[in-house]
Simulated assay, not measured.
Amino acid sequence: MAQYDVKFALNHMVCPRWTPQQLIEVAAEMGLGAVELRNDVGENSILDLESARAAGQRARELGIEVLSINALYPFNIWNEERAAKADELAQLVDAAGGRGLVLCPLVDADFSATSEEKRAGLEKSLTALDAILGRYSLQGFVEPLGFPISSLRTKAEAVAAIQSLGLEKRFGLVHDTFHHQGAGETALFAGQTGLVHISGVEDPALGFDDMLDPHRLLVGEHDRLDNVGQLSRLLVDGYEGYVSFEPFAEEVHALKDPVEALQQSMAFIRAGLTR
């Protein structure tokens, strides 16, 4: 019987009504080792150096690692505005004592660039981000988004661009189980993966092309994304990093006891991985 040691983490999307300090405290109470902060959770977002430093201080006090701030969007459409935002977010990650910055690509049905133009834009962005992140010794976590209208759907595209620029030490992938399934990608790239995001979708009426963020739940027995299978393959292939819960569904955010629900999801995943 195979058995894997899964290192779970909490993305702030598990409960946006918590403050960053509460998120960190809950992670510590649950015996977890890390959290992901965000810049898109309303009043609890990390948007200034004061809030970043305060979160980082609480994390250090409790022995919790700050994995990332999520996210720079759209990272692959580079201009002066994006450069300024990237530097601002890098400063926030640095102030929080974080490891890196999550990078999400443009999702826009009206974006009509050719494959060659998309690749050129991606390489331009990665080159510029290498310099910005390098000033703070941070990692870039590239998260392909599997939606049909995404400008960067697959990890294979991201890996090809990163390797062509020789930037493997600066950039790693986010393997998001929702987006992996949505993109129809089979390759996992465990060795290039720096972070894993997990969430479940249960609605049997939804096609994979129709799944959106509001459908993303905690992972349970009716999960259609094969989270357990994806995690099993990643772990077999050598992934040793954190697996971070990232549910977007309002019904999860409204739970009276998110901790109990998270513990149940963790137990379900661990049980599945020992079969």
Rank of each mutant, 00 (worst) to 15 (best):
Q3T: 12
Y4P: 01
D5E: 05
F8A: 03
L10P: 12
H12W: 07
H12K: 08
M13V: 13
V14D: 07
C15H: 14
L23Q: 10
A28W: 03
N39W: 11
E43R: 14
N44T: 06
I46S: 06
E50Y: 02
E50R: 03
R53T: 00
A54I: 14
Q57I: 11
Q57T: 12
R58I: 15
R60L: 15
E61H: 02
L62P: 04
V66E: 05
I69K: 08
N70T: 14
N70E: 11
N76S: 07
E81W: 10
K85N: 12
L92F: 06
D94H: 12
A95Y: 05
A96Y: 05
G97W: 06
G100L: 00
V102H: 03
V102P: 05
L103H: 04
C104E: 09
L106E: 15
V107I: 15
D110S: 15
F111A: 05
T114N: 09
A120R: 03
G121S: 03
E123K: 10
K124P: 08
L129P: 05
I132F: 14
S137C: 08
S137D: 13
K155F: 15
A158T: 05
V159N: 10
Q163A: 11
S164I: 02
S164D: 15
L165I: 03
G166L: 06
G166D: 14
K169D: 10
V174C: 05
T177F: 05
H179D: 10
H180Y: 13
A187S: 10
L188I: 14
F189T: 05
F189V: 02
G194T: 04
V196N: 12
H197N: 08
I198R: 05
I198D: 12
I198P: 01
G200S: 14
V201G: 08
A205D: 12
F208N: 13
D209S: 11
M211H: 04
L212F: 06
D213F: 01
R216G: 00
E221F: 06
D223A: 02
D223H: 04
N227R: 03
G229V: 09
Q230G: 02
Q230N: 11
L231P: 00
L234F: 06
L235G: 10
G238F: 15
Y239N: 13
G241A: 11
V243E: 03
S244R: 06
F245R: 09
F245C: 04
E246T: 11
E251W: 06
K256V: 11
D257G: 06
P258W: 07
V259W: 04
V259K: 07
L262Y: 08
Q264N: 11
A267C: 04
I269D: 11
L273F: 01
L273Q: 00
T274W: 06
R275M: 09
